[in-house]
Design a protein around this nucleic acid. Structure first.
Lengths: 197, 197
DNA sequence: CCCATTCTTGAATGTACGTACAACAATAAT
DNA sequence: ATTATTGTTGTACGTACATTCAAGAATGGG
């Protein structure tokens, strides 16, 4: 019994996620959040707790949806190299046109807050490990299929992880598609065997 | 005439730079800055202007010293590839032991503030262009000396730029030397020709 | 139709912050 | 020595913020 909730918890969380993603944690006020979620402070505190908890929830949701979907692209491809190409292609598109114009919420959180919030740091570390593992698996498949140059292998997952984080940073400066494409192309070209000529 | 300044402006700016570097802009209060600089608010405003101006001055100083010194390592080496190796080696060291445990002030600023502060964005863009140019020059030298694989060249500067930004992000998570070394090694290995065997 | 329960709202509260300022101190040219 | 000028200090001010809360509004079981 009791009054039923007048808003959808996940939908409102998505709205909050959006604002945090675009503006960062500190620059987002409770007013901004209330406006975006279309509810009043009391409802926010009742449903999610304090601002920091709302942020943690948003980050968890990001990891579980936006980020998981991106990782799935790597895994579900028909070959190791194709998975990596798909992943980076969509990354570049999203950075030029779509959601990732403001970078990646995980990257932003790591730089802005994770150093002083162990729980967030844990979430970020977990996600990075997942992404790294997906890269490593794709590289292992690629190696088995002879798609890699001799020097490349699962160890290159660390490099790809860094490249993605770097692209997330550069995206915030809106460098345009060519620069981002150039990064992705060079990263993948460094894994493939030398082409003749 | 008039009273002479009781503190060294550059020295105090260095102290402020340190705090901004470690904690970021928003998380650093005027109190923190005064404590680190060992002067009172009035002196800060008289010498540097408002908090944002102090931050801009600190960022300029960072670009002119810390960052310029790092870039010089690339240029002053005896060969293109050696310059790149030196640069990355020092980067890894500083991320494990030294100044860069908290990442790079430029990277941090880009993620945390540059999107909403055109002046800072300009500074960041300028620095990124400088670093990119240094990479490109080193790669050109390396190509002339036959140190590169066929697919690599000055265009790979974009990749190296992203890798460095990515390392700056990952450093904030304190991943330990092996992970960082692995990134640097793989980035450079992707440029060199396939080794026999 | 009640009433215990849960949700919503809008305003209130306390606090921490960036900035301004008035009083005092030091300087050096006269 | 005087004085105009500049630097320093501690405090005070206004504001913006996260959070709390009392009052009102829905809900559904009895």
């Amino acid at each position: 019994m009791g009054r039923t909730r007048g808003f959808d918890v996940d939908q409102a969380l998505d709205a909050a996620l959006r604002v945090f993603w675009e503006r960062g944690y500190d620059a987002t006020s409770m007013q901004d959040l209330c406006a975006a979620m279309n509810i009043r402070p009391g409802s926010v505190y009742a449903a999610y707790g304090a601002k920091r908890d709302l942020f943690a929830a948003a980050l968890r949701r990001y990891v579980g949806s936006v980020s998981a979907e991106a990782i799935a692209r790597i895994t579900s491809a028909s070959s190791g190299m194709r998975g990596l190409r798909d992943y980076f292609a969509h990354l570049v598109d999203a950075m030029v046109d779509g959601d990732r114009r403001w970078g990646c919420l995980i990257t932003n959180s790591l730089v802005e807050r994770a150093a002083r919030d162990p729980e967030l740091a844990g979430l970020v570390t977990l996600h990075l490990a997942n992404l790294r593992a997906a890269f490593a698996a794709a590289l292992t498949r690629a190696r088995a299929d002879g798609e890699l140059r001799p020097g490349a292998g699962p160890e290159s997952a660390d490099l790809l992880l860094a490249v993605v984080q770097g692209m997330n940073v550069l995206a915030k400066n809106h460098p345009g598609r060519p620069a981002l494409q150039s990064v992705a192309d060079a990263a993948l070209a460094g894994l493939a065997p030398d082409t003749a000529g």
